[in-house]
Amino acid sequence: MDTEMEYGSDYKYIPTSSMGSGLGTEVLPDLYCHTIQIVNVCLVGNSGAKDFVLVDAGMPGSANEIISMTEQRFGADCRPGAILLTHGHFDHVGAVIELVEHWQVPVYAHELELPFLTGKMSYPEPDPTVEGGLVAKMSPMFPNEPINLGDHVQPFPADGSVPQLSGFRWIHTPGHSPGHVSFFREADRALIAGDAFVTVKQESLYKVLTQEQEISGPPRYLTTDWQAAWDSVRKLADLQPAVAICGHGMPMAGEVLSNELEKLVNEFDRIAIPDYGKYVH
C-alpha cells in the first residue's frame, strides 16, 4: 500500500464557515456528528470504544481538527477501522489523504465514485448559474479536479454490507453524484444520508451561515441528475428513518424528520429542483 496519493491541483482551503463550525452533536450513543466549516463528518461507535469508523473526511485543511475531535471521543492515538465516503466531492474528501497517512486505514466508496477518487475523472463543473443564492455563485472556486487515492480506496461489497460497520447497510442514492451512498441501520432506523438530502438550504449563504433548519434536496450547484436525486430521496423516505445525519445542516429526528421528508418527496420538483440551471431539464 504505497501508492503516491495526491489532491487535484485546484485543492485549496475554502474560507467559508457556519455558526455550527467546530461543534459536535451526539445524535445517538454511537452516532456523533461534527461540523467542519459548512460540512458534517460522522463518527460511528460508542465513545471510548476501540472499534469505530469515520464517515466522510471534511473540508480541505481539516485533518488536524478531525484527528483531535476523534481522539477526544475515542482516546489518544485511536484510529478508525476505515474511512467510509458517501461520495467524493471536495467537501467530503478534503482531509482524506492526511487522514489515511496518519491512521494507515482503508477508504471505501461506491464503485461509481472510484474514477473521481483515483485521478481518472473530474466531476462535472459546478453550476454557478443555478437558481439558489450566493453559495452557488461561489461554486466555481470550489476544487473540482479528481483526487488520487490509488489502491488506498476500494469499493463497497456488492452485498450491501459496510466494512467495519456491522448493523448498517449502504444504499445507492445517486443524483448528486453517480456513486453517492447513504448508510442505514434497520435496528433503530438511523440514517446517514450524505448529500442525498440536506437539512439546510445549501445554496443560500445566509442559511448556511446561520444553519437555519429546513429539509432540502441535494446542493443544487453540484447536482447533475435531478430525476435520480428524486428517486433517491423517495428510497430513503420509504425507510422511515427515525433520525438522520446529513452532509450539511443539523441532524433531524422524529416527527419533524418524517413530516419534512414526506413533504420533500411530494414536492421535490418545487422544493429541490431549481427553476433554471445547466443541469435542469
Rank of each mutant, 00 (worst) to 15 (best):
F156W: 04
S68C: 04
I192P: 05
G45H: 06
V39H: 14
A63T: 01
M138F: 12
G75W: 01
T25D: 13
M5C: 06
S204W: 00
L54D: 10
Q202S: 15
A158C: 02
A237N: 15
P143F: 08
F168G: 02
K50W: 06
Q213Y: 02
D238Y: 05
L239P: 09
H34W: 15
M252H: 04
P251Y: 04
D188G: 05
L117Y: 07
Q37C: 12
F74A: 01
R220T: 07
L117P: 07
E255A: 15
G48C: 08
K278A: 02
A82K: 07
Q211T: 09
V181E: 00
I215V: 13
H87A: 11
L54F: 01
E186C: 01
D77P: 00
S122K: 11
Q211M: 09
S68W: 06
G167I: 02
P15V: 01
I271S: 11
F116S: 11
E6S: 09
G247D: 13
I245S: 05
T3L: 03
V55D: 06
A76S: 12
F197S: 00
G254K: 12
M1Q: 12
E267Q: 14
K235Q: 14
P140V: 07
E212D: 09
P124L: 03
F90A: 10
P174V: 09
V105R: 01
P140Q: 05
M141E: 10
Y279W: 04
M121A: 11
H102N: 09
N259W: 03
H176N: 14
L112W: 13
P274E: 03
P155V: 00
V55Y: 06
F156Q: 03
P126H: 07
M1T: 08
P124M: 01
M141H: 13
W226H: 04
A136F: 03
T118N: 06
E26D: 14
I83E: 04
S204L: 06
H176P: 00
T118Q: 10
Y13M: 10
G249D: 13
F90Q: 05
V181T: 08
D225A: 12
Q154D: 05
H172Q: 06
V100F: 08
Q154Y: 00
